[in-house]
């Protein structure tokens, strides 16, 4: 009985440790991470600096008053969240025309991004940048998140968020890349960048959005079964069965059939 009790105690230890570690990281993150400026609290000075940055870096395509053209979307009313998503993920400014804008190293630091967002938000109301609490995976329920993700996201982004193909060379990017932040995931749902539809708060509530983030964070732990093989499903599994499984066994067969020296 004693041994059993000891083991039970032992069994819970990793969970407790994990929770502590999560709390610690969360706390540290909250302390250290630069808090994104939301449009409401933006100062007029931020808006002015943002406008300068906009005229220098964005106006070529989006126009000096950010109203866009036939091919380029207007930014009036897209809100700070859209700017924060596009600029912090390096998609904007766009470098070349392709089927879609792709993730690159961000060109602006957090402060400049916030200033740009403040400027665009001042042109018309739109979704604001979510607070840290809104995107904190520790507060979300991964099971609800899984259900929401399955119905609304998995068909494009794959069951665990590894990404997938759209038509004509477009694609839904992987959500498991190390540089995809929880805030960007939230903003993407909120603003529907490029091909992605908008999932407004009536469709996926803010709590559900946080649950989705909790689900994705859960996936970052990898696969319970071992190497995830890209989490791409049966095709990659089949490829590995041929390459590793049959490869090793044909190697063994050659050894068995060869005459010993």
């Amino acid at each position: 009985m004693k041994a059993l009790a000891a083991r039970r105690h032992h069994r819970l230890a990793p969970v407790v440790l994990l929770l502590l570690a999560l709390l610690a990281t969360g706390g540290l993150y909250a302390l250290l991470a630069p808090s994104p400026a939301s449009a409401d609290s933006a100062s007029t000075q931020d808006i002015e600096t943002g406008e300068k940055l906009f005229q220098a870096n964005c106006a070529t395509c989006h126009g000096p008053s950010a109203t866009g053209t036939d091919d380029v979307p207007s930014l009036v009313g897209v809100g700070a969240a859209a700017v924060d998503f596009q600029v912090s993920s390096g998609r904007m400014p766009m470098q070349s025309n392709g089927p879609q804008a792709i993730r690159k190293p961000a060109q602006f630091d957090a402060e400049q991004t916030a200033q740009l967002a403040a400027y665009v938000a001042s042109l018309g109301t739109g979704p604001t940048v979510p607070t840290d609490e809104q995107v904190d995976p520790a507060l979300g329920d991964p099971a609800t998140g899984a259900a929401v993700f399955r119905t609304n996201c998995a068909m494009c982004h794959n069951a665990v968020g590894a990404g997938g193909a759209l038509s004509e060379g477009k694609f839904a990017p992987s959500l498991l890349e190390a540089d995809v932040t929880d805030r960007q995931i939230y903003e993407a749902m909120q603003t529907g960048p490029q091909s992605m539809p908008v999932f407004n708060d009536a469709n996926i509530t803010p709590e559900e959005k946080r649950d989705v983030i909790a689900y994705i964070e859960e996936q970052r732990d990898g696969s319970a079964g071992g190497l995830s093989l890209g989490s791409l499903g049966p095709v990659s599994e089949g490829l590995w069965a041929w390459v590793v499984g049959l490869g090793l066994l044909i190697g063994a067969a050659v050894w068995i059939g060869a005459k010993s020296s």
């Binding site: 998995a154 069951a159 079964g225 071992g226 499903g233 599994e237």
Partner: peptide, 23 residues
């Protein structure tokens, strides 16, 4: 060492969802 068909990634059957890489 190699994960295969970790079904909890796909979730229980429901006729509405489908995931990319459905093969």
């Amino acid at each position: 060492t190699m994960a295969i068909n970790n079904v909890w990634n796909y979730g229980p059957y429901d006729p509405s969802p489908v995931s990319a890489g459905a093969q």
